[in-house]
């Protein structure tokens, strides 16, 4: 009897081997999940804070919608309005001018993409009232006003939008390791805005991007897509360069995988907003790897066919030729 006590205690304290194995596996699974959760934590935070942004498009937009709910079914074609802004520290928060507006139609089934650059100086009625350059729409009413203004004037339905700030573009391109482009001609600018990482935001600096195939880091890529003063095509030339870099980014995105997402999300912190949910962002990355650049149609509303130069209230503006623009939009953004 005296020897039974310790033996029972040993049996009581011993865990069954199967149970121990299950416990070990569960614990390791939990710790593994915790590790994965920590890794993707920035993505989750961004998913909550930066994606799936809800905007309320005024009901008098062309589509007559009360809210910008995407109408495109999963896997179906959809239209995204890409917005790029000047350094927002010059402006009140979220009241920035959109220096770049590109409508992108993605057709996953046919693997076709159409990009239409909207000139920032295009003189149009704004959804918020009155007429102004189209780049002002965002500053008056955020993404909702920009979407509504484009929808109303171009008679197009926009499913999603994505906004990126200047620093966000620099950081994203750097995070992707730069972009490769063929620069067609010297891009020279003696009045390039010197407003990144400086205290005085209204200075200028000289920029020279030399022609030929080359690898551009984030800041040089920004100079390339932002410079316009020595371009005889002005904003139109810049629009073509923006589309060019967008396609170069698409090539880079094709090499990404989910493990790259946290770094990219960190790079874009505070400089990126989109109505797209994480699911669509992820599927877009997948789609990017299957598109052939030969299947990308690029449209720039060049004068004299689609636009003309004009002066309104002392401002240099671009006047739209809607009779020529709308059929093109209808054909490419049904």
């Amino acid at each position: 009897m005296a020897g039974q006590g310790p033996a029972r205690r040993r049996r009581a304290s011993r865990v069954h081997p199967v149970r121990l194995a299950i416990l070990t596996v569960v614990c390791l699974l939990l710790s593994g999940l915790a590790g994965a959760a920590a890794y993707f934590f920035p993505v989750v935070v961004a998913g909550v804070g930066q994606t799936g942004q809800t905007v309320v498009v005024p009901p008098n937009s062309s589509a007559g919608r009360a809210s910008p709910t995407p109408s495109a079914p999963p896997g179906g074609p959809f239209t995204v309005l890409l917005l790029g802004s000047d350094d927002d520290s010059k402006f009140n928060s979220d009241h920035v001018l959109t220096q770049s507006m590109i409508l992108v139609r993605v057709e996953p089934a046919t693997k076709h993409v159409t990009m239409l650059s909207i000139p920032r100086d295009l003189w149009v009625p704004l959804s918020t009232g009155g007429s102004a350059k189209i780049d002002a729409a965002y500053s008056y009413g955020g993404a909702a006003a920009a979407i509504a203004t484009v929808e109303r004037n171009f008679n197009v339905h926009i499913d999603e939008y994505a906004w990126i700030g200047l620093k966000g573009l620099i950081r994203m391109i750097d995070e992707l390791g730069g972009v490769d482009v063929i620069v067609t001609n010297p891009v020279l600018d003696d009045f390039y805005p010197d407003d990144i990482d400086v205290t005085y935001l209204y200075g200028y600096k000289r920029v020279a991007i030399l022609p030929g195939p080359q690898h551009l880091d984030g800041s040089h890529a920004l100079q390339y897509v932002r410079s316009r003063h020595d371009d005889i095509q002005g904003d139109f030339g810049r629009s073509q360069r923006q589309q060019q870099v967008l396609l170069a980014l698409k090539s880079k995105a094709a090499t990404l995988n989910a493990a790259n997402l946290p770094d990219i999300v960190n790079a874009l912190k505070g400089e990126f907003k989109t109505s797209m949910g994480l699911d669509r962002v992820r599927s877009l990355l997948g789609v990017a790897s299957t598109f052939d650049i030969a299947n990308v149609r690029q449209i720039v509303l060049l004068p004299p066919t689609y636009t003309s130069y004009g002066q309104i209230s002392g401002q240099s503006v671009i006047l739209p030729h809607w009779a020529q623009i709308l059929p093109v939009v209808k054909a490419n953004f049904p």
């Binding site: 890794y39 090499t255 493990a259």
Partner: peptide
């Protein structure tokens, strides 16, 4: 193990983009 998973996920990143 959790740290290992975290580090392992980091190794899955596409190296091509940031060589």
């Amino acid at each position: 193990f959790g740290s290992g998973v975290y580090l392992y996920l980091g190794t899955l990143k596409s190296k091509a983009v940031k060589e």
